[in-house]
Simulated assay, not measured.
Amino acid sequence: MLQQFGFTQYESQVYQSLVTSEQPLDATGVVKGSGVPRAKVYEVLHRLAEKGMILESTVEKKRLYSALPVESAIEKLKADFEANVQQLREAKRKQTITDDRVWTLKDNQSIQSLMKGLLEKAEQSVILSGWSDDLSSYLPLLENKYNDGIDVKIHVIGELFTVIPDVSTLLPDTQHGTLERSRILIIDQREMLFAGIEDTVWQAIRTQSKPLVKFFTEFFYHDVALTEITRKYKDIVMEDKAVREVLLNLRY
């Protein structure tokens, strides 16, 4: 009965004898009902009690045993299973080795596929920067992550229509001639991908290196800050030639 849940054969036999009995049993009754040798029965009863599968009581100096009801046992086993699964997840996280090497990748389709794969793995946060026509293909996945409670922050060049509230939008000025196509993706503050165009070909780097993840995170917020300052004080900064030239030469 219980062997498929990780219990021994003797434990299963003793539990079955108790759960099918109409009244509590002493050790002698358990031996008769389960077929477990008397020399083993006390050890088995002790293990089942430690596992919370049986109840114990002493009546007139006689030790009696009763099974945890089947429905209660089922709930307990389900809870134990979920707890074990969670421990396994935690163990996996603890054993994950950070790969601080920097990996390079070419080909736009490969880069986009890798970005989607990284987005699907996000469990806590997503930071994403790019151009609106580039990012639109990721919107369904991004909005699903947002609806799942994951923190999603986006900096976009051009208009992007989405239910995600934390979006910083830069509408390029006609003088923004130096703006370059690029993408930044940072997942769970532990892994990042940066892609840009070099000699008309998309190229990317990917790493879990903490200094680089931190650098590109700060770079993202640098872009957000400049975008918001430019948007709010555009008339002022654009009138100042020196400030305007600096802003228009920034990558964003």
Rank of each mutant, 00 (worst) to 15 (best):
L68F: 01
L68G: 00
P69S: 08
P69N: 08
P69C: 08
P69H: 07
V70W: 14
V70L: 15
V70K: 15
E71F: 11
E71K: 14
E71S: 14
E71I: 11
E71V: 12
E71L: 14
S72F: 09
A73H: 00
A73Q: 05
I74R: 15
I74H: 06
E75R: 15
K76Y: 03
K76W: 00
K76F: 02
L77K: 03
L77S: 03
L77G: 04
A79S: 14
A79Y: 11
D80Y: 05
F81E: 15
F81D: 12
F81S: 13
E82T: 12
E82Y: 14
E82D: 11
A83P: 00
A83F: 06
A83W: 03
A83D: 08
N84F: 05
V85Y: 03
Q86I: 05
Q86G: 00
Q87G: 03
Q87H: 09
Q87L: 10
R89F: 04
E90I: 09
E90C: 01
A91S: 11
A91M: 09
K92E: 12
R93L: 11
R93T: 07
R93Y: 07
K94I: 05
K94T: 06
K94C: 01
Q95P: 02
T96D: 02
T96R: 13
T96Q: 12
I97V: 15
T98H: 02
D99A: 03
D99I: 07
D100E: 15
D100S: 15
R101F: 00
R101M: 05
R101G: 09
R101I: 02
V102A: 04
W103G: 04
W103I: 11
W103K: 15
W103M: 11
T104Y: 06
L105Q: 07
L105I: 08
K106N: 14
D107Y: 12
D107G: 02
D107I: 03
N108H: 13
N108L: 11
Q109S: 14
Q109R: 11
Q109K: 12
S110F: 10
S110N: 12
S110L: 14
S110R: 13
I111P: 10
Q112Y: 12
S113A: 13
L114A: 08
M115L: 07
M115I: 08
M115E: 09
M115Q: 07
M115H: 01
G117Y: 00
G117D: 04
G117S: 06
L119E: 03
L119P: 05
L119F: 05
